[in-house]
Design a protein around this nucleic acid. Structure first.
Lengths: 259, 259
DNA sequence: GAGTGGTCTAGACCACTAC
DNA sequence: TAGTGGTCTAGACCACTCC
């Protein structure tokens, strides 16, 4: 057995017993403890990161990961908050931007619209236990959901009652701005109960812009999800593209045949 | 931009244009070409491996990966060969072992049997384009599929017509032993047309024994699939647990709601 | 036997975080 | 300011593959 793998396996035992968020020995500590070179200590910690057992933050340290099972199935509600809550995490929503745009081919196809038809795009960022966890871009037919942006802003967490300026990015206004759950807004304001029409999931290399929105550097892998929801009567109402961090979510996909 | 990421991005352009299986510059070649240390060259190639763009083989070199889209959906047939063929690969089956065992809780539950009921277990290894790509362990109710092992052996690729001894492992007899497609055997001999009842997919750390069966070292991540199939009349006939190599398969899961 | 990737050492500078 | 992880150098030995 190689040194770094033996060390990784030994650390894994401790990490699995430790509380999520607690510290793991630093590279230098492992050097002093085991009389190995820093590169070897580093390889062991990177191995644990590869196994999604720890998170490493430059300048801060290595910490036991909190990993959540994100379950996608026909009978799970297509709601970020609800999915996270069911997995035992504390969800939070942040509205990044809303805009009326022309539907591209994929969006139009999913929503049963003509290409170029107006759609409301809602960009959000999701958090789990205070950590950036995912971003999504949802599209709705503009005719039916004209005032959706207003509804979401009205329901968000700005204490002073004014609308937050979230249109120009992440850094400025959104530090702790909870927005209303999109799902809740659809249910309570629009009186529809969104259900999954279809979803796909795969693992891909994240685009650099998306990576920085998720607090990641380099060119990391992430879950790439497409999902389409319909209202109770079978009419498509939402098409979403999402990225989820692999170190936060263990995505479990369950397909159940129509019987 | 860091040196190794810039090099990786530059190599990625070439790799994407190259034929799968062709050679990528070795670490030493990159050292000489770019005047960098070997560790930096190595980091660049490892980055490409992480992106699933290349495969690295100790002693041999780094090669452009052939990656195949393994699509799981309600309407795709639950057949290894067919799934691989649809993705453009050349499939091959190898029978590792067959045995009648007592159903464990999960197997019994999936097949609608009592725990401990006899089931036929069929262990196979799948190949794509001559490369080890996955292993699976399928379970069938013993009463209905008693002679399944004999059927599979009778249909395998041994030229001399005798039965291959595949029960004791991989190294001995199985170098090029094609076994009959399990799916084909079920259709042609048992006159059932297996359909997906349900499947789940997730990414996990591979057990060491499974890793060596797949030709992998260390503790790599792999796709972990569970799937249950029924015959045309809704009776469950097969429950399978499978591992798929992530460098061979891009698993795409598609859930389609019963409408 | 020549070349490959896998591991390891003993240093170094840097960007970043937390205090 | 002290400590963290990210990157990089210039060596080394090894196990392995291919010829």
């Amino acid at each position: 057995m190689t040194t770094y793998l033996a060390l990784a396996d030994s650390l894994e035992v401790d990490v699995r017993k430790a509380v999520p968020g607690s510290r793991v020995p630093s590279e230098h500590e492992l050097v002093d403890l085991h009389g190995i070179s820093r590169l070897t200590a580093r390889a062991a910690l990177q191995e644990l990161e590869r196994r999604h057992l720890v998170r490493r933050v430059r300048g801060a340290g290595t910490f036991v990961a909190r990993r959540i099972e994100y379950r996608i199935a026909a009978d799970t509600p297509p709601s970020w908050s609800e999915t996270v809550r069911r997995a035992g995490g504390v969800p939070r929503n942040e509205l990044l931007a809303t805009e009326v745009v022309a539907a591209d081919g994929e969006v139009a196809d999913a929503l049963g619209l003509a290409p170029g038809a107006p759609v409301v795009r809602v960009d959000r960022r999701g958090w789990v236990d205070g950590e950036q966890a995912g971003i999504s871009s949802s599209h709705f037919p503009a005719d039916r959901f004209t005032d959706l942006p207003a509804q979401l802003v009205a329901g968000d967490g700005c204490a002073d009652g004014t609308t937050c300026d979230t249109s120009n990015g992440i850094e400025t206004s959104s530090r702790h701005a909870d927005s209303a759950s999109l799902y809740t807004t659809l249910v309570e304001h629009y009186r529809v109960s969104p259900r999954r029409a279809w979803s796909t999931a795969e693992l891909d290399v994240l685009a650099p812009e998306a990576a920085s929105l998720l607090g990641l550097s380099g060119r990391p892998l992430a879950w790439w999800l497409l999902s389409c929801n319909h209202d109770g009567e079978g009419r498509p109402i939402e098409f979403a593209r999402s990225w989820l961090r692999t170190d936060v979510f263990k995505v479990v996909f369950r397909l159940e045949a129509a019987s």
